[in-house]
Design a protein around this nucleic acid. Structure first.
Lengths: 160, 160
DNA sequence: CGGCATCCTAACAGATACTG
DNA sequence: CAGTATCTGTTAGGATGCCG
């Protein structure tokens, strides 16, 4: 559907990636066990949209908390201690705008507001889960590369 | 492994998300067909790391191009017209530092430099693919929500 | 060709004070 | 409690010029 095959081979095919280990064909998901593939301009746009949606500093974390069930504003604030109230508000508004999160305000004193994942928001969890799984599997390896790179030779200050 | 179950139910379970449609159990990937789950602090860190790694404006796009086979600096520059040379360089360096991308310089005149995905980098394609697939499936729905939200009532200028 | 260095700007994000 | 408004610092990122 959105990842088309090209003839150009690279070093990809001999690596046992995650997709290869599923052993199960999914129509619209890139599989690494076969020859090399690349994405076209549409995929670029899709990636862009996802990044715009949840590629910021807090969105995925908020979604992660809401995955555990509805939460009040203050619940989220304490569940994500590092976030400022400003950023929490902004993040919630954006998620709400895109239909990933529902906001329910109860007219009480003191006021109570519950946030919850919508079905749409919940459907994102799976995709995020794959990313988290990849990170969990590879982060030691990644750290190793980074350390090795940082150790090797003095490099320019161009890279912060 | 990293997504633990909580008793609190939400509106998640009746939505046919992506995970549910795979029909195949994966040990470490969140499945939405069951009761609601949430992530612990470790997952938060994993998400953080992924975002730090490829959550920026260009990394995923560069990876996408390299998925199509090795490419020279100028190939990447033309394949991603919107990117500035500065950002391309910075992005490649960071990907290289984390071991996702390999750089091979040939001592010729004029100089030639080839970039390629490492096995590690290629293994990310699958996870990204899930995100892209989600975006492809849902982006119309998302747009619809956004439009509706933007239409409804005048809201404060707090949200840009 | 494949970069690096410099300048500059705008968006992002934290702290704080205030409000319905 | 659940925000909003404002002020301010920090960083991401674009434009441009130079250099091996």
């Amino acid at each position: 559907m959105f990842l088309r095959n090209t003839g150009r081979a690279s070093s990809v095919s001999n690596y046992e990636g995650q997709a290869a280990s599923t052993g199960e064909a999914r129509v619209n998901v890139l599989r690494l066990s076969g020859p090399c593939e690349r994405w076209d301009e549409r995929d670029t746009d899709f990636i862009r949209e996802i990044l715009d949606l949840v590629g910021d500093k807090w969105s995925m974390l908020v979604i992660g908390v809401l995955a555990g069930g509805d939460a009040r504003y203050s619940d989220l604030d304490t569940a994500i201690p590092a976030i400022s109230r400003r950023m929490l508000t902004l993040t919630l508004k954006r998620l709400q705008r895109s239909g990933l999160v529902d906001r329910t305000a109860y007219a009480e004193v003191p006021p109570r507001v519950e946030y919850s994942l919508t079905g749409l928001g919940a459907s994102l969890l799976s995709a995020i889960g794959h990313l988290a799984a990849w990170s969990a599997e590879q982060h030691t390896e990644i750290r190793r590369h980074q350390d090795a790179y940082d150790m090797s030779a003095t490099r320019s200050a161009y890279l912060a």
